[in-house]
């Protein structure tokens, strides 16, 4: 593995580990992030992992681009993927899969002549990787979904996607941490609070985590504090 360094301004390098999405690079990215935090210490301003890259922003008053590059290259030379927890922690997310909170469940089912239950079972059957957080605080981009579950984004985004919605776009899946406009296909809802600025850690998921969705009943969903109001379809 020979990651490539690309300039991203006077105080940042973008480190590219591969050209296309490749689950095999995730342990390397996890290790790189961990080792970078140690190597840069207080000179690190931001570390933003995303799929195949990590953006490393440093304090330009303390380090110039050559100095920062040297630190990054030393980290890359010495890193070992497995010893630094390269596999990521496993997080379980309970989901109530139901057409009332996941209107596209039936759409996906219809494509294959499946029942909504079969779609839910397929979604919950695999373990997913958190590649990046973005879009809104705590929104985790996870993959890869099996090709049968892949769905293009909605032609017209919904104005209001309820908080906790479990969603699919292409071969990725996610959970909406807050109510927001959004164009992903909804298949269910989790009672888990995915982002809370007053909590440590603030996000339930972090880049590098592995995720498994656990199918739960409506009763369990409500007992866990979930809001079972159906998705409101507002005309765009």
């Amino acid at each position: 593995m020979t990651p490539e360094l690309q300039n991203a301004g006077i105080d940042a390098w973008l480190v590219r580990f591969s050209d296309g999405i490749d689950p095999a690079v995730q342990p390397w990215i996890n290790a790189f992030c961990q080792d970078c935090r140690t190597a840069f210490g207080g000179l690190l301003v931001e570390l933003v992992p995303s799929y195949t890259t990590v953006l490393v922003q440093y304090d330009p008053w303390q380090l110039d681009d050559t100095g920062a590059r040297r630190v990054i290259e030393r980290v890359l030379d010495q890193m070992v993927p497995d010893s630094s927890g390269g596999g990521g922690r496993l997080v379980e997310i309970p989901v109530w899969y139901d057409p009332s909170v996941g209107p596209e469940l039936e759409l996906i089912a219809a494509r294959h002549g499946w029942t909504p239950q079969q779609v839910a079972a397929a979604h919950a059957a695999s373990e997913y990787q958190v590649f990046a957080l973005g879009f809104v605080p705590g929104f985790a981009f996870m993959g890869m979904l099996s090709p049968e579950l892949a769905m293009p984004r909605l032609a017209t985004p919904r104005k209001k996607v309820p908080r906790g919605s479990i969603a699919i776009a292409e071969r990725q899946t996610s959970a909406y941490p807050q109510q927001t406009p959004g164009g992903w296909n909804l298949i269910g809802r989790t009672p888990v609070v995915l982002f809370d600025a007053n909590r440590t850690p603030m996000t339930t998921l972090e880049p590098g985590d592995r995720v498994r969705f656990i199918s739960i009943s409506r009763e369990t969903f409500i007992k866990l504090g979930g809001d079972a109001s159906p998705v409101e379809e507002v005309a765009p």
Binding site: A8, G9, D11, A12, L14, G20, I21, E46, V48, P49, S50, Y51, T52, T53, V54, L55, Q57, A132, G134, F141
Partner: peptide, 12 residues
């Protein structure tokens, strides 16, 4: 040939 989302620096 096909971009994958990447971290964005200020001014990108």
């Amino acid at each position: 040939p096909g971009m994958v989302s990447e971290g964005l620096a200020a001014g990108a």
